[in-house]
Every structure is written in C-alpha cells, then in structure tokens.
Computed example of a mutant assay.
Amino acid sequence: MMELVSSEQHKRLHPHKFTLWVAMASIIMMFAGLTSAFIVKSNLTGWRTMVLPKVFWVSTVVILASSVTMQMATKAFKAREMLRYRSLITTTFVLGLVFVVCQVFGFFDLWNQNIRFKGSSGAGQFFYAIAGLHALHILGGVVALAVMLIRSVAGKTKHYNSTPVEVMGMYWHFVDLLWLYLLIFFLIVG
C-alpha cells in the first residue's frame, strides 16, 4: 500500500513546477501580445525600422552557454557532485549577469543611433520595452541563481531534493528560448 501511494506521488506534477508552467504561460501571452502589437504598429506610416546592434549576437551566445551550464549544474546536483554543481551554478549566474550587461550596451548603441524610447520612433520603442522586460526576467533568474548558490555554499542542502534546481533549470531554459524567439522576431519582422 505504501509503495502505491509513493508511486502515485511521483507521477504527480510538483506544485512548484505547476506554478512555473502557469507563470511561463502568462509570460508567453505577454510577449505574444507585445510582438503582435509590434506587427500591427509597423504597418503605420512614419514607422522607423532599426538595425540590431552586434552586441546582441554576443548576448545570444552568452545566454545559450548559460543554458548549457545550467543543464550541467542540474545533472551535477542530481549526481550529488556539489563542488561541480557550485562551480556550474556560479558560471550560470555570471553568464546571466554578462547577458544583462550586453543588453545594456545594446541599448546604449541604439540610443547612439538616435533610437529613443519616447516619441514615434517605431521599432526602437518596442525593442526597448520588449528586450527590457526580457532582461528583467533574466535578472529575476539571476537573483534566484544567487539564492541557490548561497544555499549550496552555506551548506543548506541537507536533502538532495532536486525540484528547486529542476524548476530553476526549466525557467532558465525558458528565458533562453524566449530570447531566441525575440531575436529571430526582430530580425525577420523588425
């Protein structure tokens, strides 16, 4: 009987994972709405297009590398290789910060191209809003990574429950894929 209950519990979706799925669905809807508004507004007269700064390609490589290190960190945690886990989660944390710094440099480059957030500049306005919101989601992930790193260094990991690490990994891969979607969207439509 006990084995049956334990087996049933393993088949259920963990509440944290369910909450993450709901959050990701709402984030998808938000970005879908913003990119849809971009398409609608781009058909208006006076619309100004923009060229993506090259630093956004660097940030793309950085975010993809961080996804790899996050996946490796998850595997290391599950294998109880805590030194390797700490090293990889630190690397993911640093790469997340580098991504945000690259985004800021990209925003400065756009600003220097006279693409402003206010007024009727067109694509640039949307890009600031959309990429800025994405950067905020990355910063939220970086804060979560910092908490996980501090817990691992402080020895707070008494139980090897991989759910928090898995949830963080799912979120991190999600924001990585979201960036790829946004980059491709602005390359094709923008």
Results as ranks from 00 to 15, higher is better:
M170R: 09
R84Q: 09
R116P: 05
L20Q: 06
M170K: 08
T90V: 08
K75N: 02
I115E: 02
E81P: 05
A76L: 08
T49E: 15
V98C: 01
P53M: 08
A79E: 11
R86G: 00
N114G: 02
S36P: 05
S152G: 14
F93I: 02
L149V: 13
Q113H: 11
V165L: 03
Y85E: 00
M2T: 15
G106I: 04
G124T: 08
H159P: 06
Y160K: 05
V22K: 12
D176T: 15
A123S: 11
K78T: 08
T157N: 15
W172H: 02
M30G: 10
T157E: 15
Q103G: 02
H16V: 10
G96A: 00
S59G: 06
G122T: 04
G169I: 11
C102A: 04
V55A: 02
T35P: 12
I184K: 03
V189D: 03
M70D: 00
S87N: 01
M148V: 14
C102E: 01
V104H: 07
Q9N: 07
G155P: 14
F38V: 11
Y85K: 00
V147P: 04
V98E: 01
S162V: 15
H10G: 10
S26W: 07
H159M: 13
I184G: 15
G96S: 01
I115K: 07
I184S: 13
H173Y: 09
V153I: 14
H14K: 02
L182W: 10
H173C: 04
I184T: 15
W111T: 09
H134K: 03
Q103C: 01
T92F: 01
F93S: 01
F18P: 02
F93T: 03
V55G: 01
I184F: 14
F56C: 07
N43M: 13
L88D: 00
S26G: 14
A37Q: 13
L177P: 05
L183E: 05
Q113A: 11
N114S: 06
W57I: 13
V189R: 10
V58H: 08
L178W: 11
I138A: 07
H137Q: 06
V40S: 05
V153L: 13
G122Y: 05
F185Q: 07
M168I: 08
C102W: 01
